[in-house]
């Protein structure tokens, strides 16, 4: 396939993200990366679970966590997962502008999530004096939730650079795999969050 066919395809195939060998490689490679990330987060979850009660007489999960904020955060992130599905739907229909619109919404929802998380952390620090250094529980909490937050931040920056770079050139076989890879990453962030709200917040509330 010549460069021209990749960058300016006459028709976009049904699955543009997997039309080239590079695209298929990227798709598979990124899935494997997510497999590795699964173990990465499992290590963090395991650490958190073993240290969740090590509060060193500081505030505990039950004292601090409120469900309202976490619920809103959850809905924001879940919805952003759906909006990225919409974006990929429009990609497959070769509707570039609609894809960009839904990707934009996805990014904004992600930003909303991130703002609430920053607010939450500030709240714990100012209200309870609960920091990264106050106890083993504190270290484990901020590391686990912060690693997830870091992934969200990186995702938003990645999305922004993808959208800006491709704003004026439409879909082709070179950037379709990139958008698709981002969407996989974003779903994975949501997967991790499902376990974060379950293990950290809900179980923390239950006791």
């Amino acid at each position: 396939m010549s460069h021209h066919d990749v960058l300016h395809p006459e028709t976009l195939p049904a699955e543009p993200e997997k039309a080239t060998l590079e695209g298929r490689n990227k798709y598979l490679g990124f899935w494997f990366f997510l497999g590795g990330e699964t173990v990465l987060f499992a290590s963090l979850f395991g650490t958190y679970i073993s240290l969740r009660n090590s509060t060193a007489d500081g505030p505990s999960a039950h004292d601090m966590f409120g469900l309202d904020l976490v619920f809103i955060m959850t809905i924001l992130l879940l919805t952003s997962s759906l909006t990225s599905v919409y974006a990929m739907y429009h990609m497959k229909n070769n509707a570039f502008k609609k894809m960009m619109l839904w990707l934009g919404i996805t990014g904004l929802l992600g930003l909303g999530f991130l703002s609430l998380e920053i607010y939450e952390f500030t709240h714990y620090i100012t209200e309870y004096g609960f920091t990264f250094r106050s106890s083993a529980f504190g270290s484990a909490f901020y590391t686990l939730v912060g690693f997830h937050g870091g992934h969200v931040t990186f995702g938003i920056l990645w999305l922004a650079s993808l959208m800006i770079r491709n704003a004026k050139r439409g879909l082709n076989l070179y950037n379709a795999p990139k958008f698709n890879t981002f969407s996989l990453y974003w779903h994975f962030i949501d997967v991790v969050w499902v376990f974060v709200f379950t293990v950290v917040y809900l179980m923390g509330k239950v006791g």
């Binding site: 009660n53 090590s54 250094r133 106890s135 083993a136 270290s139 590391t143």
Partner: peptide, 21 residues
């Protein structure tokens, strides 16, 4: 990462006095 946070950023994963293990 945990070791790095502990040594360079003051975390307490392994610090028994703060509940670590």
């Amino acid at each position: 990462f945990l070791l790095m946070f502990e040594r360079l950023f003051g975390a307490a994963f392994f610090d028994v006095s703060l509940g670590g293990n």
